[in-house]
């Protein structure tokens, strides 16, 4: 059974490998400072204690005022998995360092996060839109992207209670 590492455990390792790299510790995850991200990730990958050799998942989340990139890192030999996050606080021009120098598997996933969320990854060898075409207006997974070009509304808002369907006009009998 894979052991989910607590945020404190990961933070202790990160702090001992690269002092001053941890920004915040949550119960389930460890938030790293962007400037120390690449160095810490490389240290966590090579250290025999953490052995986080496999980047399982990388995705971005829009929290209205900031962006968060979530990394799930797995160790094969020790069979544990860590959740590491990094935050970009400039919501208009979010940017974070790229992990491609450490994990080749970050290449495609970072391109996807750039395309759909607009997070720039500095140091990415070939950062361009991967699903949508160059010149597409906006980044669709952002929370403030509410209408598609042409005025189409995404989703069935009335089911979620966000956008209630207007009442049908009552029929006047007689």
């Amino acid at each position: 059974m894979t052991r989910w590492l607590s945020g404190q455990e990961v933070a202790d390792w990160a702090e001992s490998l690269v002092p001053g790299s941890v920004a915040r510790v949550d119960p389930g995850c460890c938030v790293l400072k962007p400037e120390a991200l690449v160095e810490t990730m490389r240290a966590l990958r090579t250290s025999p204690q953490s052995d986080l050799v496999y980047l399982t998942n990388l995705c971005g989340v829009d929290w209205w005022d900031h962006f968060e990139v979530v990394y799930h890192l797995q160790s094969f030999d020790l069979n544990h998995i860590a959740t590491i996050k990094c935050e970009a606080w400039d919501h208009d021009k979010p940017s974070l360092p790229s992990l491609v120098p450490v994990f080749h598997g970050a290449w495609m996933q970072e391109s996807e996060a750039y395309d759909l969320l607009g997070i720039r990854f500095d140091g990415h060898p070939n950062l361009q839109r991967i699903f949508l075409w160059e010149g597409y207006p906006g980044h669709p997974l952002r929370k403030d992207f509410v209408s598609m070009p042409g005025g189409l509304q995404p989703g069935l808002g009335e089911f979620a209670g966000i956008n209630p369907r207007p009442e049908p006009p009552t029929k006047v009998v007689g």
Binding site: L116, R129, I130, F131, L132, W133, P140, L141, F145, P154, G155, L156, G157, F159, A160, I162
Partner: peptide
């Protein structure tokens, strides 16, 4: 070169209930 079949499921899912 990919994206010819992109349907933006992740965005669509944010508007629907968990079962939907």
């Amino acid at each position: 070169v990919m994206g010819y079949l992109h349907r933006s499921m992740e965005k669509l899912a944010e508007e629907r209930t968990y079962t939907q």
